[in-house]
Computed example of a mutant assay.
Amino acid sequence: MAVNLKGRHFLTLLDFTPEEIEYLIDLSASLKLKKRAGIRGNALEGKSVALLFEKPSTRTRCAFTVACIDEGGHPEYLGKNDIQLGHKESVKDTARVLGRMFDGIQFRGFKQETVEELARYAGVPVWNGLTDMYHPTQILADFLTIKENFGYLKGIKLVFVGDGRNNMANSMMIGSAKLGLHFAIASPEGLRPSDELVKKCEEFNKVSGGTIEFFEDPKEAVKGAHAIYTDVWASMGEESKLAERIALLKPYQVNKELMAASGRNDTIFLHCLPAVKGNEVTEDVFESPQSKVFDEAENRLHTIKAVMVATIGNV
């Protein structure tokens, strides 16, 4: 089946079929080879993209900027103090203005409703660079990294340890269910995805052959894990809860003992970064040969490039 994503938004992996997600991962791999070979592209020649940031960023901002330039496009960074988004000007009106000037719009911020409203009114593809609910571009980078290490995705056991109701856990669960991974969350019972989202993912699992499991005991969760994933214990905007989260999540720290509990000698460690070493992960795991976090960070570039090329590219 031919895959055509031209003109599509990229707001959540819920909107994409397994074939479309696999297409983006494969396209990312080919664009990575091209980049490594020093080949500049022209898939975005003549295109301009707006990069809207309510939240600060290292990897997302740099990846969108470099990816756009690599393929001949022009990126324009618009921080929260640069435009009137949601303050003097409504999201709806901002979308209609930017949509007439740019070929695509990236949004990184708080509310999923904001990126959805941008998409509703912009008239051009809108890409979710992160919201409080979803982080779909990160999942593409994570899955590309896993595929590079194991050669496949379907049947992989991927375990998320820590705050299991954040945007990473949500998006990872969706991606795993779509592509047939065995996904587990190790967390306190109160920090898990919504029942509604779990039910949706269970329906995807009926087609893909994937599974979802929840554990309070992290050592039980990671048995047989190909990849162990964690994230910061307090997301952006939740810093006031950090002391409470440290007390609650200390048993979920990814350390050498937890990595060994997988029972595999090829288990890899993943983290979307930035990491708070000493909280969710120890320094020795972060710096170990099992850690693939910087491959993962680089893969943000190639997967984000694939999303832009597939949706607005000259192909």
Rank of each mutant, 00 (worst) to 15 (best):
E19Y: 02
E22A: 11
A29V: 04
K34D: 09
A37S: 15
N42Y: 12
L44S: 14
V49M: 08
A50H: 06
A50N: 05
P56L: 13
C62R: 10
C68S: 14
H74L: 05
E76V: 15
K80T: 06
Q84S: 04
G86M: 07
K88N: 13
S90F: 03
S90R: 00
D93F: 03
T94G: 05
L98Q: 00
D103P: 06
D103I: 08
E117S: 04
W127Q: 02
T137Q: 15
I139H: 03
K157Q: 08
K157T: 08
N170T: 13
A177Y: 04
K178W: 06
R192G: 12
C201T: 13
C201S: 06
K206P: 04
V207G: 03
S208W: 03
T211A: 14
E213I: 04
P218S: 09
K219F: 15
A221S: 09
H226Q: 10
H226L: 10
D231C: 05
S240L: 01
K241S: 05
L242D: 04
L242C: 00
I246C: 06
L248D: 05
Y252I: 01
L258F: 07
L270T: 07
H271T: 14
L273W: 06
P274Y: 05
A275Y: 04
A275S: 11
K277F: 05
E287P: 03
E287T: 09
Q290K: 14
D295K: 06
A297K: 07
V307D: 01
A310K: 07
T311C: 07
